[in-house]
Computed example of a mutant assay.
Amino acid sequence: MGLHPLGFIVPLFVLLPNLIFIFLPPRNAPESLSSTPLIFTLLERAGQVTCFMMPILFGDLLAAEPLGGSAVLMVICLLIYYGCWVRFYRRKREFSVLFTPWLGIPVPMAVFPALYFLLLSYWLQSWLFAVPACLFTVGHLVNSWSVYQQIRQYRN
């Protein structure tokens, strides 16, 4: 366990678009959306915090691992995720675009960060990273799918 610059970079790559989102929020967000059961929000938040903190705390572990196929797939997930953010800003920050399918992939802005952290746990062969990645994935996908379904119903 130890700090290393790479440990800060891995979660920062996923956070960067979200930081821009703070200053350029979505337009036309529904006034109210029904929420999923609280357990999914708790799973998502617990997974988020741990997925962002684990690489920082175990940065030396990341730095010691040779780059492999999982790291390449992580970069691909990240590039697709950034592409989804570009799509969001090109479409004038419409709220619904955050959940719009891409190439048949539902809620891609939830799928690709989840895959990114799952691949990180696979790359490190670490259950310590896999557990929070799974928690985040379940919570994030369920919550995002719920919003997507509500948006679809609202538009129809």
Rank of each mutant, 00 (worst) to 15 (best):
L15W: 05
L118V: 13
P66C: 05
V72P: 00
V10K: 04
N143D: 09
L61M: 12
L98R: 03
L15V: 08
F40M: 09
L128D: 03
Y82W: 14
F129A: 10
L120P: 00
F23W: 07
G104I: 05
N18T: 03
F117P: 08
E65N: 08
P101C: 08
K92D: 14
R91A: 04
L12Y: 00
L38K: 11
G2S: 09
V107M: 14
V111M: 15
M1V: 14
L124R: 04
G47Q: 01
L103I: 10
Q125S: 11
P113L: 11
P11A: 02
E44D: 11
I39Q: 12
F21M: 12
E31M: 11
M1W: 11
C51G: 08
H140C: 05
M54H: 03
Q48Y: 13
A29I: 02
T137G: 00
L124W: 03
W85L: 00
F136E: 08
A71E: 11
L43Y: 05
F13L: 15
P108V: 07
F58Y: 10
L141W: 11
L24I: 11
R87E: 05
G7S: 01
L3P: 04
E65Q: 13
P30E: 06
G104K: 09
L3F: 15
A29C: 02
P26C: 00
T100D: 09
I76W: 08
G47D: 02
V111F: 15
F129M: 09
F112M: 04
Y122W: 15
L57R: 00
I105Y: 06
T137W: 08
A71T: 13
C84G: 14
L78G: 02
P5T: 01
R91N: 14
F40A: 05
I20F: 02
C77M: 08
V14I: 15
R87A: 03
Y116T: 13
P55M: 03
W127V: 12
P26F: 01
I80N: 06
L62M: 00
H4E: 01
A110W: 03
N156P: 01
V147P: 09
Y148K: 10
F21H: 12
F112H: 04
F13Y: 01
L3Q: 06
F136C: 12
F88L: 11
M1Y: 13
M53A: 14
M109D: 02
I80V: 14
L43H: 09
F136I: 07
V142I: 15
L12P: 00
P30D: 05
L61T: 13
S146T: 10
V147C: 09
F112N: 02
L120S: 04
Y154G: 12
V142G: 04
P55K: 01
N156R: 07
P26I: 00
L12G: 01
C84H: 07
F117I: 08
M53V: 07
F88Q: 04
P37G: 08
W145D: 02
L15M: 07
G104H: 08
N156F: 01
A133D: 06
S35H: 11
L24Y: 11
V111E: 12
G68W: 10
G83H: 04
V10Q: 05
A46G: 02
I39L: 14
M53P: 00
G7P: 00
L119V: 08
F40R: 10
F52W: 15
Y81I: 05
R45Y: 06
G139L: 11
F58G: 01
V97E: 08
F112E: 03
T137V: 12
T137R: 07
P108Q: 09
